[in-house]
Design a protein around this nucleic acid. Structure first.
Lengths: 152, 152
DNA sequence: TAAGATTGATTACTCAATCTTT
DNA sequence: AAAGATTGAGTAATCAATCTTA
């Protein structure tokens, strides 16, 4: 917060920033790999099903879902194509706005998600949360909220 | 640290974990986009040049570099192919072990990197570090070190 | 004319198999 | 054999252009 913008990053700044890159990569790769191995489900698929399941009526508009899972619009179109092919999701035309579509988890999608969920939860704790005290977690939450106010 | 492994993630856990995903995505996308726009340089290229430039003799073995930039071996091979084509990097056969190669930044690679460096540094501060106090940064560094001891 | 979503073309990453040297 | 690195084949993401409805 006190550094002048022209000079090198201080060790403190370097560790705070590059540490996040290292941890994020390390943790998400581990979670993705174990979810693929044990539940044949990439983490992107898990995140889609999580968002759909969490939503009040079990469905979300394509655009909003894309924002939630940090995909481009076209990227999400392709992902939902695959999930629809795999029988985990269906598209439902949107009655109020006929340009739009709802993505909705199928029964199989929900089952596959619920089956994977406790496993993934254990993974998140094993690879990340277990290394943090409650105070650490509170502080992290506080920091994330400050960095991207809109996203949380 | 106190949660039982079977139950849902608490709000505290959720914010600590999913916040990191949101911040990481948000920040790295912003940095990548502005580096491409202003210096025609994807962030992966920047990271390669950063590691090569930081290294004592200005070069690194392919495998070690792959680990540092979180790429697979084959992924790094392709990236270095492209950077060699663009004149930013050269491969030098390794005398001590003739299976191996050194990747080394060219003069142009160093120049392009040094030109981009202050800009990227300002970006890291603008998008991330400026939202954190010195104490926040210290604590983050401390946390990252605990989560992936090897990587830092 | 703009917004929601998809498509076409391209780029880039990964795994598994391979080649070369140890 | 095993390790460093590359290659072939396949998958998946993006941008820009397009189609449809508002």
């Amino acid at each position: 917060m006190d550094a002048v913008s022209g000079d090198l990053l201080s060790p403190r700044e370097l560790l705070a920033f590059r540490g996040m890159l290292a941890v994020h990569t390390e943790v998400t790769h581990a979670l993705d790999a174990e979810l693929r191995l044990e539940h044949d489900m990439p983490i992107a698929t898990y995140d889609v099903l999580l968002n759909l399941t969490n939503s009040p009526d079990g469905s979300m508009r394509m655009g909003e879902l894309a924002d939630r899972v940090f995909f481009s619009r076209s990227g999400l179109t392709r992902l939902i194509d695959r999930l629809e092919g795999a029988g985990l999701v269906v598209r439902i035309p949107c009655a109020e706005d006929r340009r739009g579509w709802w993505a909705q988890a199928t029964d199989e999608g929900r089952e596959r998600f619920e089956a994977a969920r406790p496993f993934h939860r254990r993974g998140i704790r094993a690879h990340f949360l277990s290394k943090l005290s409650d105070a650490d977690q509170d502080l992290l939450g506080e920091i994330w909220r400050r960095v991207v106010p809109t996203a949380m």
